[in-house]
Design a binder for these strands. Structure first.
Lengths: 210, 210, 210, 210
DNA sequence: GATGAATGAGAATTCATTCAT
DNA sequence: TATGAATGAATTCTCATTCAT
């Protein structure tokens, strides 16, 4: 476990320290919920957390550092997803399991949409720290999905790509405020249903190959 | 007809002015090709364009402003996409048309990946200018895809959502450096094929409903 | 006559040139009517005059230069004041003449309040060009008023100071937007009457000496 | 009780902070004692105070802000004036009290001539912050003078205007470097005497009405 | 005469970061 | 632990000014 419970001064963090650290993280998240994190400053975060910038530096080395901590924290919830995925999806319960999977995934993202938007944007722009983290954090999920596709469509030669296409869509639709898509005729619920439908289509093994 | 050709000083732009404006846009794009645009500065752009920051401000009001101009310019290429989409896709040529569509879309994104990554990230973060622009710029494409889905699957009640799910994926996979996905076992080509396969699956009308 | 009708390029000004010059002056005045002239810029003036900064420099060397030209122009109206002052004020017509004088002075200032506020502020802050100009432009008026005081109060030993005190007040009250005094219970008319009353008091020779 | 002692970073100001703030104010005043404040820059002030511009911005938001603080501070001395004015001026001591009043007023203005010149110029140009401040800061004085005029001349219908005319003159003559008047034949002393003489004339109740 | 175009120079402003208490 | 205080180092931004057409 990497978190040694030390602050940036190398001191062991006590109860107060942990509380302050959390307060700073929450302040940062709150500030970027409805705004770009591009312009987030240490002073802003400190002020939002009702503390001083000096205190900020006791717990984090810079803005990226807090954000990464937030992503790490959010990621722990993501592990639950594997509960559904590690089960066996047979033809009989497939529809149900797909539904469970999509719902669970969407629910978690909704709770942590800010953190995961940060993770994806940083990773997409090539930030190595976040790139690596995303890789590790999605590896199991993606592999599991790949297997399910391979199992459902033994004939296909790139189950990974097929899984990735839908997974990518799911991640993005989950993380983005759906008003941001600018379509007034859709709702999150309809999108989720479409998502499920496409997974089912893919996993039911029907459809033409190219 | 573009808007009045005035620079930020209210002067009509002549030949020299238009050239300088373009030079600055190119400099900006060049600088963020392999890096985040988060930290792009006016000074950097001006220097890359071998001019002064003052000159920068003759043509753009800030960094966002140049980037938006770049997006606007890139977007003009996107219109070509409608050539394929405005045709009729019947069962006979469907595979061919899907392939054309995906290839054309991916090709354009490859050429303008920087601009469109900027557009999407800004829009995803709620920047209204980019949000509005993306909405307008993708409206026709999305509507057209929706129609094709509706035609292929008359039974479905939300063709729009189904189209959006795949379109979203396509956009993201196109804009992102595929190394950023962190999967070494896939290639752009494989992803494109999977993309086509999924569109075909959707448009061939087979598969279960939820 | 110093105005040689040459522009800053040493060219003789033709009709068009004179018109443009005037247009720039008017633009400058218009811009500072309700605002401080401290922040007036060449670009603003040029834009307000619907021309370019380059053209500005054909006629004026800098902002102070236009403002000085405006003051010079306004000052020509001030000469009229001497009409009333050069007359003889005897006991019989004194009230009438004082009234004429105050009214005339106030009227002119009202018309040129912007120019004269500039003149006084610059002079008050020690700007030599405006200081010298004000000195010359008020000399005759002040001397004339001094004489009238001396005549009315032969016993006083500093008629100049007495005249200056009231003249100073008159200048300031005339130049300042009376709302700026922040008293809602007074009007310009009441102030003018008080002004006349005080001049009469002074010139009627009554009152105690210190 | 002044307003909350917070600097522009929202920190409580301690001893050191208050000293630095004062040092910056003094630097600003020193720099404009013999020059226009129009061109005063943050860089200049910071340098004169032997600190950095960043430090300047810890305590003030811009040049106007320091100057306003200076005016506020100077204004506290002005309260003394009310000592003389709140007394009763009867016929017997009137000459003495007028003399005291004018001398006291002039003395204070001499000490704070820079601050008060700034206050008046900004207010005269319509700067709301200074306008409001001047209004409040002179209200008591003006009202008191009005009462004395009303008492001395029960017949007059606008004691306020009469008081304002002389008060205005006093303020301006006090704040302006008297060389700026450009009259070599007068001295501050003579002007003060004339000032007193006119107040006495007004308050002795003699003289004609218009 | 007029005006696009370009820029040097400097001013304002921000911000991360350190240090002493 | 926490935080006032101070600042270096950029960065943004403005403006007067010049030049070529």
């Amino acid at each position: 476990m990497e978190r040694e419970l030390l602050n940036k001064h190398g001191q062991k963090m006590g109860r107060k320290g942990l509380i302050m650290r959390k307060r700073i993280m929450d302040a940062a998240l709150g500030l970027i919920r409805d705004a770009s994190y591009k312009d987030l400053t240490v002073a802003e975060v400190a002020s939002e957390a009702s503390t001083s910038t000096s205190t900020f530096y006791v717990y984090f080395s810079d803005i990226e550092d807090v954000l990464f901590a937030c992503v790490e924290e959010a990621d722990q919830d993501l592990n639950q997803i594997m509960d559904v995925l590690s089960q066996d999806w047979c033809a009989e319960n497939r529809a149900e399991k797909v539904s469970e999977f999509v719902d669970a995934y969407m629910k978690i993202w909704k709770k942590h949409s800010v953190e995961l938007r940060v993770r994806n944007q940083e990773a997409d722009q090539g930030n190595p720290r976040f790139l690596q983290y995303r890789l590790e954090s999605t590896r199991d999920i993606i592999e599991s999905l790949e297997q399910k596709v391979a199992q459902a469509r033994p004939d296909t030669d790139n189950p990974l790509s097929l899984a990735l296409v839908l997974f990518t869509s799911m991640e993005r639709l989950a993380g983005v405020n759906y008003r941001a898509i600018g379509q007034t005729r859709i709702s999150r619920k309809k999108l989720n249903n479409a998502m499920k439908e496409l997974w089912l289509m893919l996993l039911s093994g029907s459809g033409n190959s190219v």
